[in-house]
Nucleic acid binder design. Sequence first.
DNA 1: TGCACGATGAAC
DNA 2: TTCATCGTGCAC
Length: 188
Amino acid sequence: MPMGGTQKLARAFYDRDTVAVARDLLGKRLVHRSGGIERVGRIVEVEAYLGPRDLAAHSSRGLTERTRVMFGPPGHAYVFLVYGMHSCMNVVTEREGHASAVLLRAVEPVKNIEGNTRGPGLLCKAMRIDRDLNGRDLSSDDFFIADAPPVEPSAIAKKPRIGVDYAGRWARRLLRFYIRGNPFVSKR
DNA sequence: TGCACGATGAAC
DNA sequence: TTCATCGTGCAC
């Protein structure tokens, strides 16, 4: 039932070109219901990872136990642990086996959010997202992304991705997108 | 079975 | 600029 702001994005939304999905995710609402609490954050910053040929993408090292979800069908959550302490959340995109995804880097608090949400690890902490949610279908009733009005294309900034300097020329590609001027975009 | 290394964040 | 902290992936 379409209820203002709670309409889940359909599988077809994720089953498209990863850069298009990344840009279109800006402004959408990430919803996680746990412990009887619904937490909602508006996506304001993302990064696109373009499959095995993208040397910055985890999938460039092939199909492993860790990256299994990235190689699966679109519309699922790929949640991993970085630096032994922070969870990061991605949304798998494109057809099964394409191994592409969009990393959520920052959200703007909308509902029941405590703490900083400016950064991939911080947003997961604030929204109680951890590896237990790895592989979850985002059409779940307690974990999904809700539709919202699109962001004006002129308001979308493009920059290189963060923390992937090891990826050579791939590190310089403009695959990080954020809502220009939004105060909740991560620093650096 | 061991070990180097992060798609980070916080402190100094 | 340094460091915390530990699962993953690949070398032995």
